[in-house]
Amino acid sequence: MTRVLAVANQKGGVAKTTTVASLGAAIQQEGRRVLLVDLDPQGCLTFSLGHDPDKLPVSVHKVLLGEVEPDVALVETSEGMSLLPANIDLAGAEAMLLMRAGREYALKRALAKLADRFDVVIIDCPPSLGVLTLNGLTAADDVIVPLQCETLAHRGVGQFLRTIKDVQQITNSELKLLGALPTLYDPRTTHSRDVLLDIADRYGLAVLAPPIPRTVRFAEASASGASVLSARKNKGAEAYRELAAALLAYWEHDKPLPTYSPEL
C-alpha cells in the first residue's frame, strides 16, 4: 500500500523542502519507489532537484485543476525519484480551486491514479494554511512538522495543530500527526535543547529523532540540483537516512518512531 507523508509548517525557513528531498532520496536508496510532490508556488523543491520551474511544459497546477492526467506532469530527478513539479502558475490554481466544490480533495484524486506506481509519496506543502496545504493534508496518511531549533520556532504551531484537527474532523479522519522534526539543530547549545523541550511540553507534541543538524551541505546540495544525500558523507545525510529507516519500519512493521531525549 502506498504511504503518503505530508511535510508541513505554516512558517517558512524551517528546512521543509530540504526534509522532503532528503527523506525521499533516503527512502529511494532503500529500494522503494518514491514520488515527491511540490505544492509550493515558489517551486523551491522543483528547483532544488534540478528542474527550472520557469521552463516546465506541465506542472502540478494543471493536475490539480483536472486539465491533464498526473502522469503527464511527472519528471525524473537525478537520484531516481519522480517529481510532480510546481511553478508560480500554482498560485493561480489555488485561486481557481477556491471556487470549486470538493477543492480539498484535488490532490488526493490525482494521487489515487498513481497509487500502483509508487511505494511512498512525500508532499512539500507551502508555508501557509491555504487550500494547497489543505490538499496536502487531506491526501496524506501522516504528517511531520519540521521545526527550527530557535526561540520563535513555535510561533504559529498552535494554529497549525488546530488546522490538522480540523482536517482530521472534516476531510481526512485517518490523518496521523507523527510529530515535530527538529531542524537546524546545534547540539553544542543548551538553547536548541530547551526549545525542543518547550515544544514537547507546550503542545504535547512528539519530537522525532534524530534532530537534523545545521550544516552547509544542505545549501550546497540545493545549488547542485540534488539532495544532501548525493554529497560526500555528512551528518545531515546520516540523520535523514536514520529517519527514513525509522519511517519505513513504522509503516511496514508498525515499529514506534524514535523520539528526542535531551540526553541525545
Rank of each mutant, 00 (worst) to 15 (best):
Ala101Ser: 14
Ile170His: 10
Leu49Met: 01
Arg117Leu: 04
Leu39Ala: 05
Pro85Lys: 05
Ser227Trp: 01
Ser192Val: 04
Pro146Trp: 10
Val68Gln: 11
Ser230Ile: 01
Asp52Asn: 15
Asn135Pro: 13
Asp194Arg: 02
Ala73Glu: 02
Asp254Lys: 14
Lys233Thr: 01
Ile199Phe: 09
Arg33Met: 06
Val157Met: 15
Val207Arg: 12
Gly136Tyr: 00
Leu147Ala: 03
Leu45Glu: 10
Gly80Glu: 11
Glu76Ile: 12
Glu67Phe: 09
Leu49Ile: 04
Ser230Lys: 05
Ser173Ile: 00
Ala206Ser: 14
Ala86Arg: 07
Leu107Pro: 15
Gly156Cys: 07
His191Tyr: 13
Ile88Leu: 01
Glu30Pro: 07
Thr190Val: 08
Val75Phe: 08
Ala153Phe: 04
Arg32Thr: 04
Asp166Thr: 12
Gly156Asp: 08
Asn87Pro: 02
Glu252Phe: 13
Val121Glu: 04
Pro57Gly: 15
Ala112Lys: 10
Thr183Pro: 12
Ser222Gly: 14
Leu147Trp: 02
Thr18Tyr: 08
Pro126Met: 09
Lys235Thr: 04
Ala249Val: 02
Pro182Val: 03
Leu98Tyr: 02
Leu161Trp: 11
Gly179Val: 03
Gly158Ser: 03
Ala244His: 00
Leu205Ala: 12
Ala221Glu: 00
Pro85Trp: 01
Leu196Trp: 06
Tyr240Ser: 00
Pro211Lys: 06
Gly43Ser: 05
Ala106Pro: 06
His191Met: 13
Gln29Asp: 00
Ile144Arg: 13
Val58Gly: 10
Thr183Ser: 14
Leu35Phe: 11
Thr189Pro: 08
Asp116Trp: 08
Tyr240Lys: 00
Leu208Cys: 07
Glu67His: 11
Asp198Thr: 15
Arg241Ser: 00
Leu111Tyr: 02
Pro127Lys: 12
Ala95Asp: 07
Tyr240Trp: 04
Thr163Cys: 10
Ala95Phe: 06
Pro85Thr: 00
Ala245Ser: 09
Gln159Pro: 08
Val157Leu: 15
